[in-house]
Simulated assay, not measured.
Amino acid sequence: MSSGYGTYLEDELALLGQVSLRRMFGGEGLFLDGRMIGILAEDVLYLKVDARNRPDFEAAGSEPFTYERMGLEVALSFWRLPDEIIEDGDALRAWAQRAKAAAVAAGQPKAPRRKAAAKKKAVKRKTARKRR
Protein backbone atom coordinates (compact mmCIF):
# COMPACT_ATOMS: atom_id res chain seq x y z
CA MET A 1 0.00 0.00 0.00
CA SER A 2 1.29 3.38 -0.95
CA SER A 3 1.62 5.69 2.03
CA GLY A 4 1.65 8.53 -0.51
CA TYR A 5 -1.92 7.68 -1.52
CA GLY A 6 -3.07 7.78 2.10
CA THR A 7 -1.32 11.12 2.62
CA TYR A 8 -2.95 12.48 -0.54
CA LEU A 9 -6.40 11.45 0.76
CA GLU A 10 -5.72 12.99 4.18
CA ASP A 11 -4.64 16.27 2.55
CA GLU A 12 -7.56 16.44 0.11
CA LEU A 13 -10.23 15.52 2.65
CA ALA A 14 -8.89 17.70 5.47
CA LEU A 15 -11.18 20.52 4.31
CA LEU A 16 -14.16 18.34 5.34
CA GLY A 17 -13.05 17.58 8.89
CA GLN A 18 -10.72 15.32 10.84
CA VAL A 19 -9.32 12.58 8.60
CA SER A 20 -7.53 9.47 9.79
CA LEU A 21 -6.43 6.12 8.43
CA ARG A 22 -6.39 2.98 10.59
CA ARG A 23 -5.03 -0.42 9.66
CA MET A 24 -7.78 -3.00 9.14
CA PHE A 25 -9.11 -5.51 6.60
CA GLY A 26 -5.58 -6.11 5.34
CA GLY A 27 -5.64 -2.45 4.30
CA GLU A 28 -6.72 0.75 6.01
CA GLY A 29 -10.04 2.19 7.11
CA LEU A 30 -10.61 5.80 6.11
CA PHE A 31 -12.35 7.86 8.79
CA LEU A 32 -13.87 11.31 8.54
CA ASP A 33 -14.84 12.95 11.83
CA GLY A 34 -14.68 9.56 13.52
CA ARG A 35 -16.94 7.76 11.04
CA MET A 36 -15.63 5.08 8.71
CA ILE A 37 -16.31 6.33 5.20
CA GLY A 38 -13.92 4.16 3.22
CA ILE A 39 -11.53 1.29 2.85
CA LEU A 40 -8.13 1.71 1.21
CA ALA A 41 -6.97 -1.69 -0.05
CA GLU A 42 -4.16 -2.33 -2.53
CA ASP A 43 -4.13 1.35 -3.53
CA VAL A 44 -7.85 1.29 -4.33
CA LEU A 45 -10.34 3.44 -2.43
CA TYR A 46 -13.79 2.09 -1.65
CA LEU A 47 -16.37 4.49 -0.17
CA LYS A 48 -19.43 3.80 1.98
CA VAL A 49 -22.65 3.50 -0.02
CA ASP A 50 -26.35 3.44 0.69
CA ALA A 51 -29.50 3.75 -1.43
CA ARG A 52 -28.84 7.46 -2.03
CA ASN A 53 -25.32 7.30 -3.45
CA ARG A 54 -25.20 3.73 -4.85
CA PRO A 55 -26.68 4.84 -8.22
CA ASP A 56 -23.66 7.12 -8.75
CA PHE A 57 -21.30 4.19 -8.23
CA GLU A 58 -23.38 1.90 -10.44
CA ALA A 59 -23.52 4.51 -13.24
CA ALA A 60 -19.72 4.76 -13.11
CA GLY A 61 -19.38 0.97 -13.48
CA SER A 62 -18.05 0.57 -9.96
CA GLU A 63 -18.25 -2.60 -7.87
CA PRO A 64 -18.36 -3.35 -4.15
CA PHE A 65 -15.41 -4.29 -1.97
CA THR A 66 -15.47 -8.08 -1.58
CA TYR A 67 -13.52 -10.65 0.34
CA GLU A 68 -13.70 -14.41 0.76
CA ARG A 69 -14.97 -15.95 3.99
CA MET A 70 -15.31 -19.69 4.47
CA GLY A 71 -15.31 -20.20 0.70
CA LEU A 72 -18.00 -17.58 0.04
CA GLU A 73 -17.59 -14.13 -1.47
CA VAL A 74 -18.83 -11.42 0.88
CA ALA A 75 -19.64 -7.92 -0.42
CA LEU A 76 -19.51 -4.92 1.90
CA SER A 77 -21.37 -1.62 1.55
CA PHE A 78 -18.19 0.05 0.30
CA TRP A 79 -17.81 0.51 -3.46
CA ARG A 80 -14.76 1.36 -5.56
CA LEU A 81 -14.36 5.07 -6.18
CA PRO A 82 -14.19 5.73 -9.93
CA ASP A 83 -10.62 6.48 -10.99
CA GLU A 84 -11.48 9.84 -12.58
CA ILE A 85 -12.80 11.13 -9.23
CA ILE A 86 -9.51 10.59 -7.37
CA GLU A 87 -7.66 13.31 -9.26
CA ASP A 88 -10.40 15.93 -8.94
CA GLY A 89 -10.22 17.27 -5.38
CA ASP A 90 -13.67 18.89 -5.46
CA ALA A 91 -15.32 15.73 -6.80
CA LEU A 92 -13.41 13.58 -4.30
CA ARG A 93 -14.66 15.71 -1.41
CA ALA A 94 -18.24 15.61 -2.72
CA TRP A 95 -18.19 11.81 -2.97
CA ALA A 96 -16.56 11.58 0.48
CA GLN A 97 -19.30 13.78 1.98
CA ARG A 98 -21.95 11.47 0.53
CA ALA A 99 -20.06 8.49 1.96
CA LYS A 100 -20.08 10.15 5.38
CA ALA A 101 -23.83 10.76 5.04
CA ALA A 102 -24.24 7.05 4.25
CA ALA A 103 -22.26 6.13 7.38
CA VAL A 104 -24.39 8.47 9.50
CA ALA A 105 -27.64 7.16 7.97
CA ALA A 106 -26.55 3.59 8.68
CA GLY A 107 -26.37 4.52 12.34
CA GLN A 108 -22.64 4.01 12.41
CA PRO A 109 -21.40 5.44 15.71
CA LYS A 110 -18.39 7.67 15.80
CA ALA A 111 -15.26 5.66 16.46
CA PRO A 112 -13.64 6.71 19.72
CA ARG A 113 -10.36 8.48 19.43
CA ARG A 114 -7.62 6.10 20.42
CA LYS A 115 -6.19 8.23 23.20
CA ALA A 116 -9.62 9.00 24.62
CA ALA A 117 -10.65 5.34 24.45
CA ALA A 118 -7.47 4.23 26.25
CA LYS A 119 -8.00 6.89 28.92
CA LYS A 120 -11.62 5.78 29.40
CA LYS A 121 -10.52 2.15 29.87
CA ALA A 122 -7.94 3.21 32.48
CA VAL A 123 -10.61 5.13 34.41
CA LYS A 124 -12.92 2.09 34.33
CA ARG A 125 -10.12 -0.14 35.66
CA LYS A 126 -9.40 2.31 38.52
CA THR A 127 -13.10 2.50 39.39
CA ALA A 128 -13.39 -1.29 39.36
CA ARG A 129 -10.39 -1.61 41.72
CA LYS A 130 -11.89 0.91 44.16
CA ARG A 131 -15.14 -1.06 44.33
CA ARG A 132 -13.38 -4.27 45.36
Rank of each mutant, 00 (worst) to 15 (best):
M1V: 14
G4W: 07
G4N: 15
G6H: 10
Y8D: 12
E10Y: 13
E10G: 12
E12G: 04
E12A: 09
E12I: 11
E12T: 09
A14L: 10
L15R: 15
L15N: 06
L16M: 05
G17P: 05
V19G: 04
V19H: 03
S20E: 08
S20Q: 05
F25K: 03
F25E: 08
F25S: 03
G27R: 01
E28H: 11
E28Y: 10
G29W: 01
L30H: 01
F31K: 04
L32R: 00
M36T: 04
M36L: 07
I37A: 01
G38N: 01
G38Q: 06
I39E: 01
E42A: 12
E42V: 05
D43L: 02
V44T: 12
V44D: 07
L45D: 03
Y46N: 00
L47W: 02
K48T: 02
V49R: 00
A51L: 08
R52A: 15
R52S: 11
P55R: 01
P55Q: 02
D56N: 10
D56A: 10
F57N: 00
A59D: 06
A59L: 02
A60Y: 01
G61S: 00
G61E: 01
G61I: 00
E63H: 04
P64Y: 00
F65T: 04
T66S: 07
T66E: 08
Y67K: 02
R69C: 08
R69K: 09
M70Q: 09
M70N: 12
L72R: 15
V74E: 07
S77V: 11
S77Q: 13
S77L: 10
F78V: 05
W79A: 00
L81M: 10
P82F: 02
P82Y: 03
P82C: 08
D90N: 14
D90Q: 15
A91S: 14
A91M: 15
A94M: 11
W95C: 08
W95E: 05
W95R: 08
W95D: 06
Q97H: 05
Q97A: 08
R98A: 11
A99P: 09
A99Q: 06
A99T: 12
A99F: 06
A99G: 12
K100T: 05
A101M: 09
A101I: 03
A102S: 08
A102N: 07
A103C: 01
Q108S: 06
P109F: 06
P109L: 06
K110H: 05
P112K: 08
P112S: 09
R113L: 07
R114Y: 15
K115A: 15
A116T: 11
A116H: 07
K119T: 15
K119G: 12
K119D: 15
K120Y: 08
K121H: 14
A122F: 14
A122M: 13
K124T: 14
R125W: 09
K126L: 10
R129D: 11
R129L: 06
K130Y: 14
R131W: 14
